[in-house]
């Protein structure tokens, strides 16, 4: 690989542009490809397969062709509602797990910059906050306030937008009440049952980092189930 190409890759990474590095393993030639853009003659014939790797969010060698594709795809958006203690640990875990975190909390004293350095916190109510975040079925929601005023509107948004993972903190009793409110609001039992509540896999721990670990583990598991 040429040094100029390495520099270009680093530039694309820092601007979070989705791209792929395609390499011909037979002659060592490589090229940077952005979806929708054209490729040189060398690689153009493989465009369909390259796009397919993008679609599957995968790296690999095209079958029976010595062409290696390495894709760089934007991480999954994870929206946390509640800038609470557990969220601080979730942010730490998420950094090394390729999730892109946004935190929503209308309570200013929780959402302070000091508690979450280098982290953009949306200090608004969920309905307002979601106007700033583009969401779809590739998103995940972690509701941590167990305050219906804050969690419920976010859960409703996530259900309507068919987030692939929705989890809500709270005891079984809290969750039963939450389910009843969502039922009253017109959500189907299928939708309501898709919510992971109480959130997380059973690890047995009770401390904030342990709960964060149990939540992030469940999120990773659900991400690979898709």
């Amino acid at each position: 690989m040429k040094y100029t190409q390495l520099k270009e890759i680093i530039k694309k990474k820092s601007s979070k542009t989705e791209f792929a590095i395609v390499t011909n393993l037979k002659n060592g030639l490589s090229e940077i490809y952005e979806p929708g853009k054209s490729l040189s003659k060398e690689f153009e014939i493989h465009k369909e397969q390259i796009d397919n790797f993008f679609k599957l969010k995968k790296n690999g060698v095209i079958e029976k062709k010595e062409i290696f594709i390495e894709t760089y795809i934007r991480p999954i958006k994870v929206i946390i509602v509640g800038a609470v203690h557990i969220a601080q640990y979730l942010v730490d875990f998420a950094k090394s797990l390729n999730f892109e975190i946004s935190i929503i909390d209308p309570r200013g004293y929780f959402a302070s910059e000091q508690r979450f350095p280098d982290m953009k916190i949306i200090n608004k109510w969920p309905d307002e906050a979601f106007k700033e975040i583009e969401t779809n079925e590739n998103c995940a929601l972690i509701a941590l306030t167990h305050d219906p005023k804050i969690d419920d509107p976010a859960l409703q948004h996530a259900l309507n937008k068919k987030f692939y993972y929705i989890g809500a903190l709270g005891s079984k009793k809290t969750h039963e009440n939450r389910c009843q409110r969502l039922k009253d609001a017109g959500f189907s039992s299928n939708q309501i049952n898709s919510i992971h509540g109480p959130i997380g896999i059973k690890l047995g721990g009770r401390s904030a980092p342990e709960i964060a670990l149990s939540i992030i583990s469940q999120l990773v598991a659900e991400t690979y189930k898709r």
Binding site: L6, K16, K58, N59, E70, T71, N98
Partner: peptide, 18 residues
């Protein structure tokens, strides 16, 4: 598996070259 924007191995390679 796709690659992460956050992994810094190529950036480290650049530092070494520099």
């Amino acid at each position: 598996m796709k690659n992460s924007f956050d992994e810094k191995i190529l950036e480290e390679a650049n530092d070494w070259i520099n």
